[in-house]
Nucleic acid binder design. Structure first.
Length: 851
RNA sequence: GCCGGAGUGGCGGAAUUGGCAGACGCGCGGGAUUCAAAAUCCCGUCCUGGCAACAGGGUGUGGGUUCGAGUCCCACCUCCGGCACCA
């Protein structure tokens, strides 16, 4: 293993430059630099897990790092930070098992991941690093929570305002006044049926429950009413929808968010209950099918159930409600192929025709959506159809499909038709088309006070508390009379107490409930209070971290206003598609609140978003420990170096695509780097190779160089890194054939390579005689004239089949090309004596002769 | 079931957006160097037939538009991802 002096010793080189960048603070971002334009490129916050980095992380990080380094060379002042989303369940579960404080585990994991990330040579400004678990950070997370608590949403202006500005109705008692205010706060407490996961000992947000089991661990989840903190995200539905339009995000992600918000427009319609002074309000998107409503269904939890159920049915209804309440979401949806239900014995009056229809309860109607009750139109709603068939309820068709064969079946009650058509069996409205009918009936209902236009959203208010230790404590105190007192800003941060036992109590209380004196607070008026024992969910810390990077040390504000207006918005945000709805929706929501209250100046935080694709194991399967196909980044870096790792991750394919790992591919790009190295550095001496000379580059070399500069630059801007690397390979393949390698061309190549493989590029740059880092060297300019080909080869087709190739000068006229093509012997032969009808010339591409 | 995305050599992927399909890399075959190997370098490599020149076929399947289709349109098949009783 006697290595020559000039071998490509990537481990030494990479260590050397990483140390240099760190000591030199090469990548320190300058706040409010008014000479250079700013560029903020952000990676999604990693969770510092015990597993450490997986190969998916460096994919996005390398992409963003290439852009960051490229932009610096293009003269931008670049903000490129990294930190840790460090609260969360795993460290706490580990604490339950071993008694190790989550802070200790977290610190260990952060240290390990920081080491791993640094070993890849990313150009982060490490002076801005922080973790969400730092008291200096979560102080401001708590502060933002207080802003939610102390704000209300002005419906008319569609924005949040300080609670002091809330108009309060006259003549309220003190208690009523307090209740009124509390009912308007954007952070509020509610007794709500929640997703309780006994195994995890916590409540989960709807979006953390997948198919009735917990997203983490796959434990069963049941519904249980509990006191919870909620954030009124639903107030922002319209803003969250509208804001998407202007963003440079993948359309698929925008669509996911739109669907998640789930806006639907229809009508609220009131049905009188026979023999009661009660009405059941339903929401429907199809008011045009009112004449086809043959029964009604209320959610089992609907409050009117108790009142209207007749004595005869009381027992059965009670039983049904009990079963429904005990069902998990899984039982209620996925596996529940059979509809269930129970009549209440009560009847409602259809407001359009006075018909008496039975009222049922069934768990296919959700209490949380719309009004918790529906009118059932089995002829035109698949769920109602299924239910009606099962319980033998009447089916009345009121929409005639345009297709006669469908119409036949619908009329016979055999087919459920949910599309648009022409109204039938609808009295005076017969013959109307669906959209017209909708409009007219909505108007008709409103005139008679029986209904009104209505909009509904699928999005629910955000369940914002967890029964956990390792999260941000809520900065509030419960008073003895059941009220809530918020801490003042100068009481922040409220830190977590030391506790002995991290086990959840099992009753739904957080481990903080056992924390003794921390719980007890003496309030300013001398009374005793008790701290909130729930903590915030992991999303909280990641909702605003991009703002803290702007001013991480600030002790008087979450970030300085001037710095904020300089750096925001984030110009490029790269991360995994798994955060399409949750993190990205929540972060936008928090940002909107801060915007409304004047703490930030942009309505949206993330200008451009890109999702990197998943990396599969060798053999095209998801990487997992059980399959044994997990690639360890540490090992790749040790064997091939960080530059090879970076280059390979980018060379695999398009950034957004899912693609399989292949160790041979790493060797391939490693060979490319070795080749580039040998081209410039003498293998024996380690000095600049003799072949690199101050010489004029020949025409072909110069052209290829300028083509390469051009392609790599435009490809970086489009995040098409795989093709940029391919172009650099083409250039090196050419250069390797030259006996004399013009130094000026070599230098430009090294600069172009630098964003991708910064360590080797720095070393080569030094080898070329430069004493300073190349991080701020200007990106080479390309000359469009030099990049142009002089001569081009054109394919000549006869009737679309290639018969010959001709070489013409790049600026040849159409006529000249035509002439040359028609005089080709092979072409003449192929034309077999026929006259050309048309000759199509596509310059620099081909000629097609039509005969 | 619904909504996205994708189907191109043995493999990962290119193709200026309607203009020479297969760039670049991997793998494979052959050769050079070497005592030998590693490393490196050179040549070849979509398929079929042929010694070759060359001919024919070819981008999931079937149809269509066009002088010309991997790219556009229609129908279908397969795989991946997301959502899933939201009235």
């Amino acid at each position: 293993m006697s290595e020559k002096k000039g071998a490509y010793r990537f481990l030494d080189i990479e260590k050397k430059w990483q140390d240099y960048w760190q000591a030199d603070k090469t990548f320190k971002a300058v706040d409010c630099d008014n000479i250079r334009e700013k560029y903020y490129v952000l990676d999604m916050f990693p969770y510092p897990s015990g597993e450490g980095l997986h190969v998916g992380h460096p994919e996005g990080y390398t992409a963003s790092d290439i852009v960051a380094r490229y932009k610096r060379m293009k003269g931008f002042n670049v903000l490129h930070p990294m930190g840790w989303d460090a609260f969360g369940l795993p460290a706490e579960q580990y604490a339950v098992q071993t008694g190790t404080h989550p802070a200790e585990t977290t610190q260990k994991n952060i240290d390990n991941m920081r080491r791993q990330i640094k070993s890849l040579g990313f150009s982060y400004d490490w002076d801005r690093e922080f973790a969400t678990t730092d008291p200096d950070y979560f102080r401001w997370t708590q502060w933002i929570f207080l802003k939610f608590f102390n704000s209300y949403f002005d419906q008319a202006e569609q924005k949040a305002k300080p609670i002091e500005q809330l108009p309060i109705p006259e003549g309220l008692t003190e208690q009523q006044r307090r209740d009124y205010i509390d009912s308007r706060r954007l952070a509020y407490e509610a007794e709500a049926p929640v997703n309780w996961c006994p195994a995890l000992g916590t409540v989960l947000a709807n979006e953390e429950v997948v198919g009735g089991v917990s997203e983490r661990g796959g434990h069963p989840v049941i519904r249980k009413p509990m006191r919870q903190w909620m954030l009124r995200i639903t107030k922002y539905c319209e803003r969250l929808l509208a804001g998407l339009d202007g963003l440079d995000w993948p359309e698929s992600i925008k669509k996911l968010q739109r669907d998640w918000i789930g806006k639907s427009v229809g009508a609220d319609v009131d049905f009188k209950v026979e023999g009661h002074d009660a009405t059941i309000r339903v929401f429907t998107t199809r008011p045009d099918t009112l004449f086809g409503a043959t029964y009604m269904v209320m959610a089992p939890e609907h409050p009117l159930t108790d009142i209207i159920t007749t004595d005869e049915y009381k027992k059965a209804v009670k039983k049904y409600r009990k079963i429904a309440a005990g069902k998990s979401d899984l039982d209620r949806t996925d596996l529940a192929k059979e509809k269930t239900g129970q009549p209440t014995g009560a009847y409602a009056i259809n407001p359009v025709n006075g018909e008496k229809i039975p009222i049922w309860i069934s768990d296919y109607v959700l209490i949380g959506y719309g009004t918790g009750a529906i009118m059932a139109v089995p002829a035109h709603d698949e769920r109602d159809f299924e239910f009606a068939v099962k319980f033998d309820l009447p089916i009345i068709p009121v929409v005639q499909p345009d297709d006669p064969r469908q119409a036949e079946k619908v009329k016979a009650g055999e087919l459920c038709f949910i599309g648009e058509g022409t109204a039938i069996n609808s009295g005076e409205f017969n013959g109307l088309r669906t959209p017209d009918f909708k409009r007219q009936i909505t108007h008709w209902l409103r005139e008679r006070g029986r209904g009104t236009k209505a909009v509904n959203y699928k999005l629910r208010d955000w369940l914002f508390s967890r029964q956990r230790y390792w999260g941000e404590p809520f900065p509030v105190v419960h008073t003895q009379d059941g009220g809530i007192v918020a801490l003042t800003e100068d009481e922040l941060p409220l830190e977590l107490p030391e506790i002995d036992n991290y086990k959840p109590s099992g009753t739904g209380q957080s481990p903080l409930a056992n924390s003794g004196e921390w719980l007890e607070v003496e309030l300013p008026d001398g009374t005793k209070g008790r701290r909130e024992t729930n903590t915030m969910p992991q999303w909280a810390g990641s909702c605003w971290y991009y703002l803290r990077y702007i001013d991480p040390e600030n002790s008087s504000r979450l970030c300085d206003g001037q710095k904020e207006s300089y750096w925001m918005p984030v110009d490029l945000y790269i991360g995994g598609a798994e955060h399409a709805v949750l993190h990205l929706l929540y972060a936008r929501f928090w940002h909107m609140l801060l915007y409304d209250l004047g703490y930030v100046g942009t309505p949206e935080p993330f200008e451009k978003l890109v999702n990197q694709g998943m990396i599969l194991g060798e053999g095209n399967q998801k990487m997992s420990k059980s399959r044994g196909n997990v690639i360890n980044p540490d090992k790749v870096v040790a064997d091939y170096g960080a530059d090879s790792m970076r280059l390979y991750e980018m060379f695999m394919g398009p950034l957004e695509a899912t693609k399989p790992w292949n160790m041979r591919g790493v060797e391939g790009v490693h060979r490319f780097l070795g080749k580039a190295w040998r081209m410039i550095i003498d293998a024996d001496t380690g000095e600049l190779a003799d072949s690199v000379k101050d010489a004029q580059a020949d025409e072909v070399t110069l052209r290829l160089l300028h083509q390469t500069i051009k392609k790599v630059g435009t490809d970086i801007e489009q995040l098409a890194f795989n093709t940029a690397i391919s172009q650099m390979m083409v250039f090196i393949n050419h250069l390797s054939k030259l006996a004399v390698r013009p130094k000026s061309a070599v230098e430009k190549f090294v600069l172009v390579l630098a964003p991708f493989a910064p360590h080797i590029a720095e070393e080569l740059w030094a080898g070329l005689g430069h004493s300073k880092t190349l991080a701020y060297e200007p990106w080479p300019q390309y000359d469009p004239e030099l990049a142009k080909e002089k001569e081009v080869e054109l394919a000549v087709q006869v009737m679309g089949k290639i018969r010959d190739r001709i070489v013409v000068s790049a600026d040849a006229t159409e006529d000249q090309i035509k002439q040359k093509a028609l005089s080709s012997e092979k072409v003449i032969a192929a034309m077999a004596g026929k006259e050309p009808k048309r000759v199509i010339v596509i310059k620099s591409r081909l000629v097609n002769i039509v005969i």
